[in-house]
Design a protein around this nucleic acid. Structure first.
Ligand code: SF4
Ligand code: SF4
Lengths: 147, 147
DNA sequence: AAAATATAAGACAAATTTTATCTTAATTTG
DNA sequence: CAAATTAAGATAAAATTTGTCTTATATTTT
């Protein structure tokens, strides 16, 4: 029950980028150094992010990455889905076609429900939220929703 | 971002047990058959559940498993933690000792927050909730918390 | 313009985790 | 006490995750 290390790195890398002056072309080398991640692994992660369209890549000397979507509009959920694929807690609750139950089984509604909550929480945080200050100034969700 | 198949099976297996008359000694063979899971895999899963104390096991002919904790008191979170281990979304947000940040890093508060929400949601459902009827009669959480 | 350099892209490989099976031990029944 | 039934535990296969190494592309320098 965790995100992959790749998704974790991706988020940290994007947060690092968001902290640089807007428009800066960032090198994987620097992104990796500042996130304590293996550069070659981070490289592959950014390839995936580039393919998805949220960052733009430039090959060759002075190449690197820039945002293609504003960090305010990139939520944690977006990043996790790009790297890890769809968020399916029990790996079938959404993909009903993969199960042979005619009616929904005993646990279907629960997983759908919990998934909905999780996705909303993951969508409540954007990359830009972390670039500002450490104890980010947004109110803590779990208090706001009184849950 | 999903629970393991083992946890999924565990939950389904326990729900099956909860549907039998209280006190029934259940065989792995039957539990597996009724959850479409490999019996030998389910066997190992129930070993783990037995070690944790939530079920009791009986060896030998007419052996099997019974609840050691009332299904009402076994939440989904409990089961997942027994099978998959602690719920750590980014695999460090709780285990601060495993990281070398002096202050908390940029993403620490977010993960702590989302984790808190997820855990509450997982704790809101018990095994007994599913034994009653399919569209279980408890209100849908994601609506109740207006989130 | 060619060579050297810096960079991302993509192919490849190791490590870990997940999923499962196979063998052994324990208990009951006849 | 032998046979049958069941869980426990050891072992193995498969899948996924994590990571590295090589190749292609663009820029800069000579
Ligand atoms: S009905 Fe059950 S098995 Fe089928 S998709 Fe829903 S949760 Fe999965
Ligand atoms: S400070 Fe950052 S790296 Fe350390 S435990 Fe928290 S989330 Fe993990």
């Amino acid at each position: 029950m965790n995100i992959s290390r790749a998704s974790d790195y991706a988020i940290r890398g994007l947060v690092y980028m968001a902290k640089q002056p807007a428009g800066t072309v960032c090198f994987v080398k620097d992104i990796a150094k500042n996130t304590n991640s293996p550069a070659s692994f981070m490289s592959k992660i950014f390839q995936t992010l580039a393919k998805s369209g949220i960052v733009h890549s430039f090959i060759g000397t002075k190449g690197g990455f820039t945002f293609n979507v504003q960090p305010e509009n990139i939520t944690i959920k977006t990043v996790i889905e790009i790297i890890d694929g769809p968020i399916l807690l029990n790996r079938c609750a959404v993909n009903k076609s993969a199960c042979n139950e005619i009616d929904n089984c005993d646990v279907h509604y629960m997983w759908a429900d919990i998934r909905k909550i999780l996705i909303k929480a993951l969508n409540a945080y954007s990359i830009a939220d972390f670039a500002k200050d450490k104890k980010n100034n947004k109110e803590v969700l779990s208090e706001v929703i009184n849950f």
